[in-house]
Nucleic acid binder design. Structure first.
Lengths: 240, 240
DNA sequence: AGGGGGCTTTGATCTGGATCAAATCGCCAT
DNA sequence: ATGGCGATTTGATCCAGATCAAAGCCCCCT
């Protein structure tokens, strides 16, 4: 059924890109075949173990990345060690901060992950040459801003119970890129990381999870695997 | 001393724009003389009283605005009335959410303010035709994202004392567009609004302000006017 | 000048979540 | 299997900040 040469949009697309998770993501989805080929020439796939650091807070990085699979957490730490996770990113998100070299936060693999790393200078050039790419990255920045502000409401005004429900709902909603909402999933974060995302302590997170379990809203298997029995109730608990 | 015609970059610039606060802001600074003229033709200056609503949460607005003077607060409210301020914007910031019509937050004048309102469709067209404008708005979105994440750290991990110090420092740093940091300023927010920005109650905000006053870090005149006696100490209290 | 209403401060008490302290669980390496 | 170690849960107690309550203050209006 394949058409032989032209007419097939994948003609001329690098082999590595054809089945890539991020092929139609924020960055690569906005590039021409020529650009894709050039970016691919200087790209490197990298497997990250959970906990591995992609960008260090306060450092200057000369790379950007795309997330191919896995979950990446964005963290801020204070000099005294207090830590706050300020965002989660999922495949095929773009990771990096155009226009500013020094990073004000760190990016770490929360789960085992695979990323596609490419030179900052090269993408910066492509951004300035490609309005569609600028637009696409602008769109992701605005979506992240919406998400950050939604989370500010969670941090500032929700109770511990509502915070934990919010987290479970967020994961249920984003864990599987294909399905809009999944009722069973693995948590990409440890209890300590959940605490740092919600502005709580480990103990409070654990107690609230237990409470949800005892109320029959969720089941917990092996600490990390969650089955949501009553998604409606979970959503109701967040109260918008 | 004026050069007669061409050579003066302001030639052909609408009169209304020449002395405008936002003339070199995120939007207008990225437009050509022709575009500026067109945008100006469909723009409207509007005076807002403190508390006046620019965009309602959940509504669809067909306008964007530039802040000419004053302070605008971005709020989210929950169905039960709990409220969180998720951002403050100062002249000459742009207010609006490109790409998405329905607003997930409300924008209100925190102080008496003046804004320049223009049609969404028109600016959307200019954005798609003007890479420099797209870039400029992308830049503002990323700066707002940085600010939102910084505030997430404040909301999630700082104590009431540190939160109030963070707010005073934010205002000292942004109140006067001209000076980088001012040691005396009027608070653009009431105690209730400060509480909604910091995720605290009015009473806690008041007590922490009193504590700062008694420690000699600040002086408070007429509730709204603040003089910072010891800016170093204020910054130290935020601990990065 | 007087009086009223909405902020703001101050005081007393309560409580949700933090902190301190043990178990218990799960998983890996031997 | 067995031991060991980090992660998680559970329990006891504490405390920062919320809540409830009452002045005080400021400013505007008549």
């Amino acid at each position: 059924m394949d058409v032989a040469r032209s007419g097939v949009p994948e003609a001329g697309i690098p082999v590595a890109c054809r089945s890539c998770e991020a092929r139609h993501g924020v960055v690569c989805g906005a590039l021409s075949g020529r650009q894709l080929k050039e970016l691919n020439r200087y790209s490197l796939r990298r497997k990250m173990d959970a906990g591995g650091e992609i960008i260090a807070q306060g450092s200057e990085s000369s790379f950007y990345s795309n997330i191919m699979c896995g979950v990446v957490k964005l963290c801020k730490v204070m000099p005294d060690g207090r830590e706050q996770i300020v965002g989660l990113q999922f495949a095929p998100d773009f990771v990096g901060r155009p226009f500013v070299r020094e990073s004000t936060l760190s990016a770490e693999a929360a789960t085992d992950a695979e990323i596609c790393v490419f030179p900052r200078n090269l993408l910066d050039r492509m951004i300035s040459e490609t309005p569609e790419l600028q637009r696409s990255l602008h769109g992701q920045a605005l979506r992240e801003l919406d998400a950050a502000r939604e989370w500010m409401l969670t941090l500032g005004r929700r109770t511990a119970q509502e915070k934990v429900a919010s987290l479970l709902h967020l994961i249920a909603t984003h864990a599987e890129p294909q399905t809009p909402t999944s009722t069973a999933f693995d948590l990409p974060l440890s209890r300590a990381e959940i605490a740092d995302f919600l502005g709580l302590t480990i103990e409070t997170v654990s107690r609230q999870m237990t409470k949800l379990r005892k109320r029959g809203v969720i089941r917990i298997e092996n600490n990390r695997h969650i089955v949501v029995h009553d998604m409606d109730e979970l959503e109701r608990m967040i109260s918008a």
